[in-house]
Design a protein around this nucleic acid. Sequence first.
RNA 1: GCCGAAGUGGUGGAACUGGUAGACGCGCUGGACUCAAAAUCCAGUGGAGUUCAAACUCCGUGUGGGUUCGACUCCCACCUUCGGCACCA
Length: 826
Amino acid sequence: MEGHYDFKRIEEKWQKYWESRNQHKVTLTADKPKYYVLEMFPYPSGALHMGHIRNYSIGDVVARFKTMKGYNVLHPMGWDAFGMPAENAAIKHGTHPAQWTAANIANMRRQQQQLGTSYDWDREVTTCLPDYYRWTQWLFLLFYHRGLAYRRKAAVNWCPSCQTVLANEQVINGNCWRCDTQVGKKELEQWFLRITDYADRLLKDWELLQGWPDSVKTMQENWIGRSEGAEVIFPIKDREEKITVFTTRHDTLYGVTFMVLAPEHPLVMDLVRGTEREETVRDFVQKAISRRAETRNGEEPGKEGIFLGAYAVNPINGEEISIWVSDYVLMEYGTGAVMGVPAHDTRDFAFTEKYGIPKRIVVIPEKDAPVPEQLTEAYAADGFLVNSGPFNGLPVEEAQEAIADYLEEKGIGRRAVSYKLRDWLVSRQRYWGVPIPIVYCDQCGAVPVPEDQLPVLLPENVVFKPGTVSPLAQVEEFVHTTCPRCGGPARRETDTMDTFICSSWYYFRYTDARNAEAPFGKEAVDYWMPVDQYIGGIEHAVLHLLYSRFFTKVLYDVGLIDCQEPFTNLLTQGMVIKDGAKMSKSKGNVVTPEEIFTKYGADTARLFILFASPPERDLDWSDQGVEGAWRFLNRVWRLVNNNADYIKTAAGGKEALSQADTDLRRQLHETIKKVTEDIEERFNFNTAISAIMELVNGIYRYQDKLEIGEQNPQIVREALEKTVLLLAPFAPHLMEELWHVLGHEDSVHQQEWPAYDPEALVQEETKIVIQVNGKLRERLQVPVGIAQAELEEKVLSLERIRALTAGKEIVKVINVPGKLINIVVK
RNA sequence: GCCGAAGUGGUGGAACUGGUAGACGCGCUGGACUCAAAAUCCAGUGGAGUUCAAACUCCGUGUGGGUUCGACUCCCACCUUCGGCACCA
């Protein structure tokens, strides 16, 4: 036998075998418990990288394990196939996005098959094909008819490099999430989805998501940014209009000494129109707006302001306060107007310091303490009210209730909630996306394309030129159409949809991927959904994962599905890094799946990736670590092959087990227990694999220590077969091979997952650790059932313990049965 | 600034509910096999010290305190790294 196994031959052989048996095809089987495991589908960029390999290896272990556990497992794969890179490639190389994408898909699918993944390819979903995007359009119209999709003119994020707008979630630190270019603002009429309607439900359904990491929940919570407070209505002196502000600190209403409007606030120019301030204010506002467009997030903002010459009246005490405009107030949040309480808000404090506005303290930390003359910084913490009329002496929390009641009673305000979350901007000025199924008619306005006219096909004859806006707008045959309502001439919407819409519902489509009558059938979706285990990168914490939750809730409300959350359990895998940094071409630390497949095969790649670290953590790529995984697989291969004949020929009657037999058998069943728990409860594949390694070492040691005649072939056989079964989800090809080497004719992946035998775990003796004052001093082998009093006596009579306790008082003896005895002496 | 995660040998990482710190792998050292090497198999491997040896002692999980018979694990304060949010009233 040669030194190592022929992975190429073995992996190809069994991939063909599985395919020929249709082994990974899954159908709705109502009497079997289902399990839906899903890895985030990839963008077809051209080739898989190690992050993909990690993602799919984790998913495949879960899928194969659950299959062996008797579940009807849905494990599909598909392509998030619309998006910018295809269009950029078209501009650069002249290939059509459709062809470029199809070629990439073909290559990546080949690599996934090479990895040995157990996908049901009959359910493959490709978002750029009409049989899929037809239903994306259908869903868009469903949102539209429910008032959840609407068009509005707004200042939106604009990426000059991608030549398109972006949703707020897609702007990362002021830069485009895809190309990292700095994002600016543009005033455009665009389509939005009303995700803000679902803000509260997105926040409240956490109890359905016990299986999600806290980090992701916190990130979504911060993003939604719910604040409870009040709106207060301030009349303007000598004018009809009123200004409403949102505040979370209505308890400090008596401390208001000024008011600030956002530069975009409509009242700003109204207040100065016709006064000598008009020009200066207009200048200021324009500069503030353009400055904000240029300011990167993270830069220290200026808090520039200017007085408008007008006064508002504090409704709670009738005081007149100056009205200002400043860039530190945002039009998009709350009401775009803020009451200034410098003594209790750091931003207001800084503003008054700059412009010499007075401060008034209305909260002090200790009840009835003297009110300080001066403040060096704003006091934003808890305390008791002062200078607040009838509310003096109340603690902050009670004062908020009392003042809110008072505002509502007098009709000068009300309790209110405000969110940071904005509606989802979904228009994109690009070609390679789903056409928005809307037609504009001079007579009828915006008209939805009727369902029976779907899909609105993406035209193929498009000219790609760098820097052109909205390529679809240049395709005359596409743009010019007739109005579905009045039959008159009309123009099609030429923007396409954000690709995050495509990925917000693909997991539903998998349950019924070839349905031509509907996005999915009710029976299929109710059987398979929700996804039991979702696996992917944390970078989607507030993008894809938030959008998908939103979609699911809408579809639930419509009655299309029965689940309110799409993903019951979420595993966010860590990055694959090398030499302390994320793999990247510019750093020159890239290892490609292709080279590992060629040198070691897929099983080694999988085993290394799963062994090197637990899935949520970053994984440090190590060539020597890969070598170790390769060596281990060969060690198993050798062990099985060397014993195959021996255990077949020597299958005799059951004899009494020797001590070595019992010990090996105990180790085997302890390993089964541990591996099962590690996979099932914690996804700790690394410790599961290490336990199997120890077992393999144990079998080697058993055979090394005993002459052939002293060994028990039945025990060896049991150990080898179960080792192969335990390793099957991790190294599916080699274990299939070895399963057959052991004389079986069916697939190892269709076997039952081994159960441990509790009787094999029973020990006659156990090791007790003995401590004196908490320090390990001795170990003692004792029978399992030993009486505790007898054990203590035995321990105290040990020579070494007597020496250590001689002349000292034994204060007490701690006895952890079966484990440890600690003698406390003084 | 706020929120979250993490800091353990030369190294990737174990230690699950407070109970033998360092499993398993890598690397390194020694041995077997070989003409030799590769491959493989076996053994050793946290640091310092005592010892012919068997053994034993002390130190040791980012830092400083605390709780406890006993702390990588719990509490308080701090340091460092990574990630998210960032004028959100």
